[in-house]
Amino acid sequence: MNKKLLLWITVTGILTILAIDDIVEDWSTIDGSFEKIYIFFTQDLFPPDWSILSSEPNIKCNSEIGFFCSQAWKGISETLQMAFIATVLGFVISLPIASLAANNLYPLPIAMAARVFLAGLRSLPSIIWALIFTIAIGFGPFPGVLAMTLYSIGYLGKLQYEAIEGIANEPLEASMAMGLTKSERFLFVVIPESSNNLISQLLFMFEYNVRHGTVLGLVGAGGIGQYIDTNLKFFVYDKAMAFLIVIFVVVVIIDILSMVIRSYVTDESDFKRPKWWTVLLPSDAAMKIHRRNLEE
């Protein structure tokens, strides 16, 4: 092995051990921790209490299907709504700010000011924003939506200006020489050129907001997290576990859906599908049919 690399690995390893030793003041506290975790999992968390999927009398509900009047549905649908609103608002607000932050569109002083603004929004995690808004507004999903929106603006804005800076310079130059205005350049050159990335980022942000929306309930900002928080406070761990499994399933479903949608916004797949049913085909197969139709 390269001597220099070996030295780096050794130094990093020693520093890591020293840092751990500094943080863990009393190693004896770790004794028996694995057994405690094992007992907690097998006796407190499992089996999960699936009553959260049944109709709950305290929930106002007109549906005849019990599941739609359950705590799980109420919680997860609220979280999904919060994530959806925050992602859409975040996207719409962040896009113009990201255009100001892109140094291929605006001069450095303007770009830097916009970047500092976005970094400011991003520097506080959404849970801290949620805490601030619950203090200001009170408990419920609204402060949660505001918190996620602000964080989404900061996070999406950064991803967006990086995507905008990555577009080819020639279309921008051609439109400048033609005399198009900045807003026309942004709408008709920048957005189409970075559209695949923007859609992909939008889907990622929605996924992220759903996952983080579950945490916001811990500070009273609505969503399924609020049910988890209540159950944890009253040591009803089996119900909390059931909620966690619901979140896991929903996140996996969103992940799969988002993966499928993202596969349609790659360079290889953003062509007009020849027939409606070809959306079900992989992009290269649909493209073959498309080319054959063109040749005919």
Partner: peptide, 28 residues
């Protein structure tokens, strides 16, 4: 505005837009 039409070496077309949308950009 529109006094100069520019065709760079790599053409400078908006790759993800349709051929017509690109021409409409000039018409704008």
């Amino acid at each position: 505005r529109g006094d100069i039409g520019y065709i760079p070496q790599k053409l400078g077309l908006v790759r993800h837009s349709s051929a017509k949308s690109n021409v409409m950009l000039g018409a704008r």
